[in-house]
């Protein structure tokens, strides 16, 4: 199972890099989204995959009967997903602002803040 997840993570990174190199801001963002998901999967599998029950306590805080899965990587993931979601929402809003200001999303053409090129 770890192998499958490692391969999936690697595939996502490859796709992400391909998207991020395309020079279009929106594609770059989608690449970033894939990249953060690849990292999430990597963290998830780094926290050891067990066939244990989900880490929830029963009534009055009783532990589950069977082996419990490690809850910490899941908590980390949840935090990372939440933060990633917030950042993605922000970058999407920024992309819209950029599109409205420049009327294109080609990052090679975004040179307003750069020194003027000699003609």
């Amino acid at each position: 199972m770890e192998t499958v997840l490692a391969l999936l993570s690697g595939f996502l990174v490859a796709a992400a890099v391909w998207l991020m190199l395309s020079g279009n801001l929106l594609r770059f963002l989608f690449g970033l989204l894939l990249l953060s998901n690849a990292v999430n999967i990597a963290i998830f599998s780094a926290g050891r995959l067990t066939p244990g029950t989900p880490p929830f306590l029963g009534d009055k805080g009783a532990l589950p009967d069977a082996v419990m899965a490690n809850s910490l990587p899941q908590a980390l993931l949840l935090t990372a997903i939440v933060i990633g979601f917030g950042l993605f929402a922000f970058s999407l809003a920024l992309t819209i602002r950029a599109y409205r200001s420049f009327h294109h999303l080609d990052v090679d053409q975004m040179r307003l803040a750069e020194p003027k090129e000699d003609a």
Binding site: L32, A46, R48, L94, V107, A113
Partner: peptide, 29 residues
């Protein structure tokens, strides 16, 4: 110009954040 600067700032900092997260996760693993 601020939007232009922000695009570069945001994208590159997000990549560094993802790397940091990945490193922290692997270290925990």
């Amino acid at each position: 110009e601020a939007i232009d600067g922000a695009v570069k700032y945001v994208t590159l900092n997000l990549i560094s954040t993802v790397l940091f997260l990945c490193a922290a996760g692997l270290l925990y693993g």
